[in-house]
Simulated assay, not measured.
Amino acid sequence: MKIAFYGSSLLSAYWNGAATYYRGMLKALAARGYDITFFEPDVYDRQANRDIDPPEWCQVVVYDGTVEALEQVATQAADFDIVVKASGVGFQDDLLLTRVMAAARPGALRVFWDVDAPATLAEMRAAPDHPLRRMLPDLDLVLTYGGGDPVVAAYRGLGARECVPVYNALDPETHFPVDPDPRFACDLAFLGNRLPDRDSRVAEFFLKPAGLAPDQSFLIGGSGWGDVPMPGNIRKLGHVGTGDHNALNCTPRMVLNVARDSMAANGFSPATRVFEAAGAGACLITDQWEGIELFLKPGEEVLVARDGQDVADLLAGTSPDRAARIGRAALARVLADHTYANRAEQADALFRAHAGRMEAAE
């Protein structure tokens, strides 16, 4: 089957946290025989900051960030068996959704794939005339990369026919243990772009522990942190390319995950960073959110912190040997249960079930 996927960017992770998820999912679906074309707009300097070349497993169409170009690529949806519009494309999202779903041929599977479901749901609740909310009853399927039962219930309550979480995972060919890199030597590293709904949690779970542990060394990577005042034991890296992620996860004694406000409040929303770090064998500290035990076992495969004081205590109380044991256990768990091959098997079953229903209706 042929998939048209309209998303933010497959080629660039620059200001694009969904890139790892797109790459892992679509690569694994291609391995199952899907013919995929990814459509992405040239916006936010992403094309100037590409970190991969167009892959052999997916055709990529880059279009200008103009309404005229959007209209042109939207018409191409008519040539595909499955038409996917992702959330957060970054240019005229509502118009793109309307145009690609209108262009989809009769019988094609029409999918909205939400990579930030708590935020999307909040927008729709606040706007009864939201274009996605109006269109939900006519879409065949909503997929989300997290959220669990709360997100499923919310989407169904707003009119979705079917909503299924397809969680983040690991691509073991992309994220894996490597030798330590002295550039990233520290006690605790955090990687994430600065976003309004992440600021307060980063202050609590990263900046506060740095202030409480002046004898420990800290690294922060990601765009947007340059002008944020921080304790002197924090080193700022700026944007970290995908090619350096494994070293950044393998080198520090411990690595921190901090959820965005909406995802922490909703729960059941592990970030891609969780699986990237585990796939590299890192000892991960995550802020506490409901559902973590579905993915990694607290205390054995991941360390969980309720606040910044907990982070400081875990840093002080976790020896390098214990950190290494936790990292090895996390790696074993994600390789067994949380790869994109697992997730693609799930998505493939959903797609084929729809195809079977359409054949039966003919």
Rank of each mutant, 00 (worst) to 15 (best):
residue 105 R to M: 12
residue 65 G to Y: 02
residue 99 R to Q: 14
residue 150 P to N: 10
residue 88 G to D: 05
residue 132 L to C: 07
residue 114 D to A: 04
residue 90 G to H: 08
residue 69 A to D: 05
residue 74 A to T: 05
residue 76 Q to Y: 02
residue 156 R to H: 09
residue 135 M to L: 15
residue 141 L to I: 11
residue 129 D to W: 06
residue 143 L to P: 08
residue 143 L to N: 14
residue 147 G to W: 12
residue 119 A to L: 09
residue 130 H to E: 03
residue 86 A to F: 01
residue 128 P to F: 03
residue 81 D to W: 14
residue 96 L to P: 05
residue 135 M to T: 14
residue 156 R to I: 02
residue 79 D to I: 04
residue 155 Y to A: 04
residue 87 S to E: 00
residue 77 A to R: 10
residue 103 A to M: 01
residue 132 L to T: 07
residue 84 V to A: 08
residue 112 F to N: 04
residue 125 R to P: 02
residue 73 V to C: 05
residue 97 L to Q: 12
residue 71 E to W: 02
residue 94 D to F: 10
residue 76 Q to K: 13
residue 82 I to G: 08
residue 151 V to K: 11
residue 121 L to G: 03
residue 83 V to F: 07
residue 152 V to L: 04
residue 128 P to T: 01
residue 125 R to K: 13
residue 117 A to K: 01
residue 104 A to L: 06
residue 94 D to K: 12
residue 102 A to L: 11
residue 106 P to F: 09
residue 160 A to I: 09
residue 146 G to C: 04
residue 141 L to E: 13
residue 69 A to N: 01
residue 96 L to W: 12
residue 87 S to P: 01
residue 140 D to F: 03
residue 155 Y to K: 03
residue 113 W to H: 14
residue 77 A to V: 08
residue 114 D to I: 00
residue 86 A to P: 00
residue 144 T to V: 10
residue 112 F to K: 03
residue 144 T to W: 12
residue 131 P to Y: 02
residue 151 V to T: 14
residue 128 P to S: 03
residue 101 M to N: 02
residue 67 V to D: 14
residue 142 V to D: 00
residue 76 Q to D: 09
residue 109 L to Q: 09
residue 103 A to S: 14
residue 117 A to D: 05
residue 150 P to V: 11
residue 145 Y to W: 11
residue 64 D to G: 13
residue 159 G to V: 07
residue 73 V to H: 06
residue 148 G to D: 07
residue 147 G to R: 06
residue 108 A to I: 06
residue 134 R to N: 03
residue 152 V to Q: 09
residue 118 P to T: 01
residue 128 P to M: 05
residue 91 F to W: 04
residue 160 A to F: 12
residue 127 A to P: 03
residue 76 Q to C: 03
residue 120 T to K: 11
residue 155 Y to R: 07
residue 110 R to G: 05
residue 139 L to A: 03
residue 74 A to G: 06
residue 110 R to N: 07
